[in-house]
C-alpha cells in the first residue's frame, strides 16, 4: 500500500473509547466520502468497513484513534482511513483475516468483510498494537 503519510497530516481525528465514538468516526468518514464525490454505493461500503474496523479496534484493541483524509492519485479521489490502537495485537493475523473466525462474540466478518468492501487494505500488528489502513476510491 502506498504511503499516505502526507494525507494523515491534514486528517480529521476521532478518538475512539466508547461505542458512540464509533458512530462519530462513521459520520466523519461519511462526510469525507461525500466531499470526495464517491458514488453512494462506495460511500456505503466505506462507512460500513469503517464501522467494522472501529468496533474491532474498540473491542479487541481497547480503543484507539481513527484518522481520515481525502487522497488523490492519478486523477481520481478517494478516502483514506487509518485505525490505530495500542492493544495487545493480533497473534495469528492469517487466521484472523479468515471469514467466520472470531475470538470474541462477533460473526467473524469484521476484518475479512471490511477488506472486501474497500480498494486498499493494509494491516500491521504487533505487541505495540494494531494499525489498519484502508482506501476507497471514487469512480
Amino acid at each position: 500500500m502506498k504511503d499516505y503519510g502526507t494525507a494523515v497530516a491534514t486528517a480529521e481525528t476521532v478518538e475512539v473509547t466508547t461505542s458512540s465514538d464509533v458512530v462519530n468516526a462513521r459520520q466523519v468518514v461519511r462526510t469525507l466520502a461525500q466531499r470526495g464525490g464517491l458514488p453512494l454505493v462506495h460511500q456505503t461500503k466505506l462507512v460500513t468497513a469503517a464501522s467494522e474496523l472501529g468496533r474491532n479496534m474498540l473491542i479487541y484493541g481497547g480503543g484507539g484513534v481513527v484518522r481520515a483524509a481525502l487522497v488523490a492519485d492519478s486523477g481520481r479521489s478517494g478516502v483514506y482511513v487509518e485505525f490505530r490502537d495500542q492493544g495487545p495485537g493480533i497473534p495469528d493475523i492469517e487466521t484472523a483475516m479468515q471469514d467466520g473466525w472470531t475470538s470474541g462474540s462477533g460473526l467473524g466478518l469484521g476484518l475479512s468483510g471490511a477488506k472486501r468492501l474497500v480498494d486498499e487494505f493494509d494491516i500491521a500488528t504487533g505487541e505495540g498494537g494494531t494499525t489498519v489502513r484502508i482506501v476507497k476510491w471514487g469512480r
Binding site: L40, T44, K45, D99, L107, L109, S112, L117
Partner: peptide
C-alpha cells in the same frame, strides 16, 4: 432496506 445497503451487506458476507 436501501439498495446500496443491500449490496454492501452481501459483499460483507451477511
Amino acid at each position: 432496506m436501501r439498495p446500496a445497503v443491500a449490496m454492501t451487506l452481501v459483499e460483507l458476507g451477511l
